[in-house]
Simulated assay, not measured.
Amino acid sequence: MIHSMTGFGRAEADQQGSSIQVEIRSVNQRHLDLYLRLPESLNSLEAKIREQVKQTLARGKVDIGIRLGTATNSESALTINQRKLDSVLALLQAVAQQAGDTLAKANALEVLQWDGVLEKQSIGIEQIEPAVLGCLAEALGQLIESRQREGESLATTLQDRVNDIRAQIERINSTYPAARESYHTRLRQKLEDTAISVDEQRLAQELVIFAQKSDLEEELDRLGVHLDEMLRILSQGGPCGRKLDFLMQELNREANTIASKSIHTDITQAAVEIKVLIEQMREQIQNIE
């Protein structure tokens, strides 16, 4: 299966009064580059998060954001600081003993509003770690599915371009014999028009040399081999962007040679079209993992 390097994944979870949100975005990059945005309380998990991503992805610029908040349905997000409450109650009792009935008694709500008495429940990293890593795994799964869908589309496009190049190769194969014969005829006609005495044996030797220099069979055969290898790589799947990029270089080299050997405008046009198709494939391949 071919995977693109462009994708998105998102997952959420609630754990002991805390909400966890993980978002992952990825775009094409030559290597695997990870950018993490974590709350300070999760800094100790950075190494595990990086390792989990590296085991899943091979290439791409990956941006991971993890947020922690208070769950909307939490019933235990707040707790009483018992030590602080005891201190406040002791102070109130001391004031009451001195003031007697001249002061109104404090109610429970006023006591809870005293700074530090009511505080958010603290959750240890060991309690929330499984939920964070599980949420990360879910988001990574969505990212992979997204990259897979995009990769399937890219593979289809590349296969279409391969077929287009094969059509241009067939065009060259059908044009070359007649073009070569036409060149021979024109050359002989020019010699006759200039009234130059023609040494038939020497002319035959020159024509053989020309045929060897302008022969395209080897280049066309190599083009076919490279296209077959490209289809094999696409069918095999897995991370293959670098292999395909190397094949683009080889295809382009053969196309340039064909263009330089061209003896007919149809062959030149076909070679230019092949180069255009190769460039289109190269642009698509830049996004393949």
Score class of each variant (00 low, 15 high):
217 E>V: 11
69 G>H: 09
20 I>R: 07
82 Q>A: 13
172 I>R: 02
58 A>F: 04
43 N>D: 09
233 I>M: 11
33 D>Q: 09
109 L>N: 13
192 E>H: 07
205 Q>I: 13
115 D>I: 10
152 E>R: 06
48 K>L: 13
101 D>I: 08
157 T>H: 11
12 E>K: 12
252 N>G: 03
216 L>S: 07
30 R>L: 03
42 L>Q: 10
30 R>S: 01
241 G>A: 09
42 L>P: 10
244 L>W: 07
149 R>Q: 15
244 L>E: 04
85 L>Y: 09
69 G>N: 10
218 E>R: 08
37 R>Y: 06
114 W>L: 14
10 R>N: 04
36 L>K: 10
119 E>A: 09
127 Q>D: 15
85 L>Q: 10
100 G>H: 07
269 Q>G: 15
248 M>L: 11
95 V>D: 02
264 H>N: 15
10 R>P: 00
51 E>N: 15
195 A>T: 13
245 D>Y: 04
25 R>A: 11
43 N>M: 14
261 K>W: 04
192 E>S: 13
79 T>Y: 01
229 E>D: 05
5 M>W: 02
127 Q>H: 12
127 Q>I: 14
84 K>V: 13
159 Q>F: 00
45 L>C: 06
51 E>C: 09
60 G>M: 03
219 E>L: 02
44 S>N: 12
263 I>D: 01
79 T>N: 02
168 Q>A: 01
97 Q>Y: 00
4 S>I: 02
53 V>L: 10
94 A>N: 08
103 L>T: 12
